[in-house]
Write a protein that binds this DNA or RNA. Structure first.
Lengths: 342, 342
DNA sequence: AAGGTTTGCGGAAAGGTTTGCGAAAATTAT
DNA sequence: ATAATTTTCGCAAACCTTTCCGCAAACCTT
């Protein structure tokens, strides 16, 4: 079946393309009778204006690219609806890309977005991203870029973040208040700012309570790999190093720690308290349920998208840095009063 | 900043646009030396091919439109990653649209997708959709359309569904097996096939156990409206009609039923068992946790997207109807053995 | 009735890419 | 050296829309 274009209508009506275009846009220059005729035929033929042609003319596709490590991570799952809402309000659509925490995929996705002349980009960096040329490229093309959740200092742009330092500090403090002083820590991906900040918050809390950092109970877990996560946890357990609590960069790690600890007969939270990050829904399914730092993902999505449009609609624009509050959700895995499971 | 195009490169190099185009595509007609020169300059200028122009030429934008009532519904939240995965594999991107269960929005979104010449559409209908002209329009334009989760018989196309009849039948049977015979039912949106099928499954199970349908304990709840949901539940409770179980079209309804029942001192599951649909994560948070019919959303997403590409890549195509298995997740709200809460 | 104004419409360019076809340049063959 | 190839590249059309500019016809003025 042929595509219906302005030309189709113009030819059938014996008028010019520009007249058809103007008629459909209710341009005052067009006589009522011809406008009617055009409208009727357009309706009858199911004419749909070709956005592609319009976008080419406009040099922009009214679309915002959203690049995240994994859609299925709780944080992004919750942030997406917020973004969609704001975009919808502006008449824009969302192009959602997944990087699977791979730098190469991220670069490919960014190029793809740039190539389709996206009006803006909202991005949460892949864990493996250490080179930022592709992000600089976005800015060089004058496409608004907003970073959210995962920051990096090398890029200057608007950002929507959580105070990860403070969140980790609080979580650590709660554990210390429960008289736990040998708090193990699982660090996340090395070059992720949020990972670094969480570690610093943890360190600071210890320092403020005159507890010295014990490198033996600080491990690194590149959390997207199940095997390495298990390995890191096992390493801690096998090391013999004393620990009465675990603060983990992510719930994925914390969940495994909880499961593996139980397998070893470690009582939670009696012998070992555990707190993770992100407040994944599955935390509820565990026994005991896992405590976690919850982040206002929905609001992050809204804020991030709003910043894109703010930048899009102003010629001279000052980057904004929005820091939202996280909250600590305490559950059975860290409540000193709860009975040991089993 | 100027957009870098083939012309930019051509002019700087003193060659023609077509030569640049061919050079970048490694066309054999191009001398190695000029190819080199073009590549270098393109690299240096951050040239990104303009997809918009290409798509216009191609008359298609390599994009699949995904239209769902609400991204945040558990089913869609889980289906999306599956879709993204398949699309990515085919080098396509996802344009995700939300209808908020409004017919008007759905029509607008569809038109928008048609207008931007989407290569295919995956759709789960809004609850208020009773007119299907916009869907027929998709098909008239020869754009592959795949319906998932929410079906409608008026449209003939590939579909990915759950056997809602069977799921409701099973859930009802479980309740009957617990010696509950006065099972109330909350129907979902009237003209939604899945709503109808669930009701039929419920009715069938009752019939197969010689239990007659009691219209007094069958209510309708247009679940997206909190107030009407509460009203429907209150109506049941206030009616004085005997009931020892509730099967609800959605978890939203079931959750409210659970909360409201507890407020009235009704013991769950002792006095009243409750089962919902969709297995929302929040079911775990309730006390007691809510039983629910879980649907393989991720697989639905994969299947649906695969069908789009199947249709896209074959000239003469036979529609497929895929029915996936759901499973009943029994939790405290319906287990006869568990102790009454409180 | 001659000039000026308004009304209604068409021509053409621009946006960036791909590609068939033809033409010039370089190569080989005679 | 000329003819016959082969190699390398340019022209132009096509994809569809919007919009500036201009032109003709119809209207109004005095």
């Amino acid at each position: 079946m042929e595509d219906i274009t302005l030309k189709t209508i113009a030819t059938k009506l014996g008028i010019s393309i520009s007249t058809v275009s103007r008629a459909l846009k209710n341009h005052p220059d067009i006589r009522e009778s011809t406008r009617q005729a055009v409208y009727e035929l357009a309706e009858q033929l199911d004419y749909e204006p070709n956005q592609l042609a319009f976008q080419l003319l406009n040099r922009r596709s009214n679309t915002i690219g959203v690049v995240v490590p994994k859609i299925s991570y709780a944080l992004y799952l919750q942030a997406l609806p917020g973004m969609a809402e704001v975009a919808e309000k502006h008449g824009y659509q969302l192009l959602i890309c997944q990087t699977d925490d791979s730098y190469e995929k991220e670069v490919r996705q960014i190029h793809s977005l740039l190539s389709s002349r996206t009006s803006g980009v909202v991005l949460s960096m892949s864990a493996n991203t250490t080179n930022y040329d592709h992000l600089l490229k976005i800015q060089r093309k004058n496409v608004p870029l907003v970073l959210f959740n995962r920051d990096c200092e090398e890029i200057t742009c608007s950002k929507v973040l959580i105070d990860n330092h403070r969140a980790a500090y609080e979580a650590t403090s709660v554990l210390i208040a429960q008289d736990r002083r040998k708090i193990a820590f699982f660090r996340g991906p090395e070059h992720l700012q949020i990972s670094q900040k969480r570690f610093e918050g943890y360190s600071q809390a210890l320092a403020d309570h005159q507890i010295s950092l014990n490198p033996d109970i600080i491990k690194i877990a590149a959390d997207q790999e199940k095997d390495s996560t298990i390995a890191a946890i096992t390493e801690l357990f096998d090391s013999g190093a004393q620990h009465d609590a675990i603060l983990a960069y992510s719930d994925q790690i914390a969940q495994w720690a909880l499961v593996l600890a139980k397998q070893r007969g470690i009582r939670i939270p009696h012998d070992l308290a555990i707190i993770g990050f992100y407040n994944e829904p599955t935390n509820e399914l565990l026994d005991p349920p896992l405590s976690s730092v919850s982040q206002p993902a929905y609001e992050m999505g809204i804020k991030a998208m709003e910043l894109v449009f703010k930048e899009l609609n102003s010629t001279r624009f000052a980057f904004e840095r929005v820091v939202l509050e996280s909250s600590l959700v305490l559950r059975g895995s860290s409540e000193v009063n709860s009975l040991p499971s089993q």
